[in-house]
């Protein structure tokens, strides 16, 4: 499914649901859930995060990038990613 695919259901901030106080930049698996397969940070309209948590998440992802835990970008191999034209 596309990263930017529209979901009809109302989204709710995952971090509010789990009552997360601090988003850890070391927790790569959580961060990856909020990144596209190209390594971009998913926008709030896609992730459904609240402003506070989206801000924390963005900071965490940027920290993780600096420490080479997650990539800045994932280079395109053939001009097509999972069968879709970019």
């Amino acid at each position: 499914m596309s990263d930017y695919a529209r979901k009809p259901k109302r989204k709710y901030c995952q971090f509010c649901k789990d009552k997360v106080e601090y988003i850890d930049y070391k927790d790569v698996n959580t961060l990856k859930k909020f990144m596209t397969d190209r390594g971009k940070i998913k926008p709030r309209r896609v992730s459904g995060n609240c402003a506070q948590h989206q801000h924390q998440l963005a900071t965490a992802i940027k920290r993780a990038r600096e420490m080479a835990l997650v990539p800045y970008t994932v280079p395109v191999v053939s001009g097509r990613v999972d069968g879709r034209r970019r």
């Binding site: 070391k26 990038r65 080479a68 835990l69 997650v70 990539p71 800045y72």
Partner: peptide
Amino acid sequence: KLAYEIAGLAEADYHV
């Protein structure tokens, strides 16, 4: 493994 090369290294030792 590093997500990208740093100073020619592909992997490195992490400590927290």
